[in-house]
């Protein structure tokens, strides 16, 4: 089934310089009771974003109007913890197309790739450069090119290449998904079961 196509974006970013952001923070368990994939964006980072009465916490970055953009930039080991794909759904539903960090947890990375949300792993040094640039100018624009696999701070021209599995890259740039691929090999599964 077709999924979202991702090739290239150029946008301002939302900085979240916190390490080990787990999927319970991205979407707390009590919001996992929905049975569809839509609407999780409203509760993205719920307990960091709203107080117990549901009022926005002004100091949280998603509530600071100056920070807008389709790229979330976060500290290392982003997406650790629970395998809930709802975390990737929440980020995508909120409007993010990519997450940049110096390290991603395994399951989150796979879930993001399966939902057209690109995880871009950069060096610690480059991550710091992005945070510093956004610190100086909250409107800093970042370019991410999946086809040529680079990320660039547009104003300074500083850029870095990033890795992505060639198969997942083909899926994202063409909008394929894994089930389409495995179904095309279905006779091999039957053969395997015979063995």
């Amino acid at each position: 089934m077709a999924t979202k196509i991702f090739k290239h974006i150029q946008t301002s970013v939302v900085p979240l310089p916190i390490e080990n952001i787990d999927t319970d923070q991205i979407i707390p368990a009590r919001f996992l009771k929905a049975t569809t994939r839509e609407g999780f964006g409203n509760n993205l980072f719920r307990d960091w974003r709203y107080d117990n009465e549901g009022n926005p916490k002004p100091e949280f970055v998603l509530n600071e109007p100056i920070y807008r953009g389709k790229i979330l930039v976060a500290g290392k080991n982003f997406g650790c913890g629970s395998s809930r794909e709802h975390a990737a759904w929440a980020l995508a539903d909120y409007g993010f197309d990519a997450v940049v960090s110096s390290f991603f947890a395994d399951i989150f990375k796979g879930n993001a790739l399966n939902n057209g949300l690109l995880p871009v792993q950069v060096s610690d040094g480059f991550l710091k450069k992005i945070f510093d640039a956004v610190d100086k100018d909250p409107h800093t624009v970042i370019e991410i090119d999946l086809v040529d696999q680079f990320i660039k701070i547009v104003a300074t021209g500083e850029q870095e290449g990033f890795e992505v599995n060639p198969y997942k890259k083909a899926c994202m740039t063409n909008g394929y998904d894994d089930i389409d691929y495995i179904l095309s090999k279905k006779e091999l599964i039957a053969e395997f079961e015979e063995r």
Binding site: S83, R84, E85, H86, A88, D106, I107, G110, N111, N114, N115, N165, Y167, D177, D178, I179, Y181, I182, L183, K186, I189
Partner: peptide, 22 residues
């Protein structure tokens, strides 16, 4: 190992999973 919901669908549909060897 744990998987996301897209992969749950994958396994329900095919009893298989696309996986990179760790």
């Amino acid at each position: 190992f744990g998987i996301g919901t897209s992969q749950v669908e994958q396994v329900l549909a095919t009893q298989c999973l696309l996986q990179q060897r760790p």
